[in-house]
């Protein structure tokens, strides 16, 4: 018997909370103490002189303005490399929507005392790719990067900034509420089917190095991994190797036979 796998969820929750606190506190620090070392949120973030730019927004800006700006490309580099090697980890380990969804899940768990919440609506997973293509096409037709109007990870940060700086809330915040309501209807519905950023990161991470690998010899086919997966993937069918998997490590944690482990895949 191998040793039981690491419990990733506590680490993930800590990372999510830290990422959320980062965007919660920095506008306040910026406003009152002119602390500009860390600035911005998950559309564009700077730590010192290190820049991060959300790849989808950057790509749309390049496509719609038909011009390339060097610093933008450099800013997109780290998120793209992260997705290239680790897959869609931004979604499960950093995204503030993920944090809020986990918070909602936790509250629901406290109320209902059920371990797993059933999925409400199940659609074809390919919708995710159509969301990405449709998004980029629509942005090109309109001539403005429209993901920014409905980009929930960026909007959360912007709303927090609006509240701290101007004591108002922008109307776009409705999008965040809609996304969270969708999560109430069906687990991670927006993330699974409609998030273009998630789709782009999944596309970049198709050949990712870090994968959740299942050992069919150890598997006792209890099906608990499918129940626990926030994306509704079934590791028993090998769906953990599909581009949709966002490497949250939840299935590995619940697996009683410890048949699921993170593996650094060699090329």
């Amino acid at each position: 018997m191998k040793k039981p796998p690491t419990r990733y969820t506590p680490i993930r929750i800590i990372t999510l909370t830290a990422a959320f606190l980062l965007i919660l506190i920095t506008p306040y620090l910026n406003m009152h103490f002119h602390f500009s070392f860390i600035q911005g949120w998950f559309q564009s973030l700077s730590i010192g002189n290190l820049w991060f730019v959300s790849p989808l927004e950057g790509l749309e800006s390049i496509l719609t303005s038909r011009s390339i700006y060097g610093p933008l490309l450099v800013g997109m580099l780290i998120p793209i490399l992260l997705a290239l090697f680790l897959g869609r980890v931004f979604c499960s380990w950093i995204c503030p929507i993920s944090f809020l969804s986990e918070l909602i899940d936790w509250i629901i768990k406290l109320i209902t005392k059920k371990k797993f919440r059933p999925f409400g609506i199940k659609l074809s997973r390919r919708i995710l790719w159509f969301a990405l293509i449709g998004e980029i096409l629509l942005a090109l037709i309109i001539g403005a990067p429209i993901f920014v109007f409905l980009s929930p990870p960026g909007l959360v940060g912007r709303e927090i900034m609006m509240v701290t700086l101007f004591k108002t809330v922008a109307i776009e915040g409705v999008v965040v509420i809609v996304v969270l309501l969708m999560h109430l209807v069906s687990k991670r519905m927006f993330c699974r089917y409609f998030c273009p950023l998630g789709a782009l990161l999944a596309l970049i991470g198709i050949k990712r190095r870090l994968v959740m690998k299942s050992d069919p010899d150890q598997c006792i086919e209890c099906g608990i991994c499918k129940k626990s997966c926030p994306l509704g993937l079934d590791p028993q069918k090998g769906e953990n190797l599909s581009p949709y998997c966002w490497n949250c490590g939840k299935c590995s944690e619940v697996c009683k036979a410890s048949a699921l482990r993170f593996v650094w895949k060699d090329l």
């Binding site: 600035q39 564009s44 730019v53 959300s54 749309e60 719609t64 011009s67 990067p145 960026g154 700086l165």
Partner: peptide, 15 residues
């Protein structure tokens, strides 16, 4: 080209 180039990240607003 302003609306097509700007990604509305709001960094200028914050800073």
């Amino acid at each position: 080209i302003f609306p097509s180039k700007c990604i509305r990240c709001g960094r200028c607003v914050e800073v």
